[in-house]
């Protein structure tokens, strides 16, 4: 991955309180795992931003290297990699996600 891509990814992640790298868009997710992840944040009713990795092959590969995580979607809160679909759903189910999200939004 080029340095430029890595820097661009870092800047994007750091400038968004809640950021989801996904396939497609929240209205038209192109993968069930991306859709399920969006559903969690819709249930929480909080603002979030997304990046569609299908629009940019460099970002699609770059984000996997950035986080050392092989799959999409990827959720970042307050600049920190939280996990993929399974982790976010599990954290939502056991009540861990909401306080983390609220704290990030208040910061």
């Amino acid at each position: 991955m080029s340095e430029i891509t890595n820097d661009r990814i870092r800047e994007t992640i750091e400038s968004n309180k809640i950021l989801i790298y996904m396939k497609g868009s929240p209205s038209f997710p192109m993968c069930g795992f991306s859709a399920a992840t969006i559903e969690v944040f819709e249930e929480l009713g909080v603002p979030y931003n997304t990046v569609d990795v299908l629009k940019d092959p460099e970002v699609r590969e770059g984000i996997k290297r950035y986080s050392n995580w092989p799959t999409i979607p990827q959720v970042y809160i307050a600049g920190k990699f939280i996990g993929g679909c399974d982790i976010v759903r599990e954290m939502h189910a056991n009540g861990e996600l909401e306080p983390l999200v609220k704290e990030a939004l208040q910061a």
Partner: peptide, 10 residues
Amino acid sequence: TRVDRHRAVY
């Protein structure tokens, strides 16, 4: 952590 567990599996 969860992330580390998943990474280990991956």
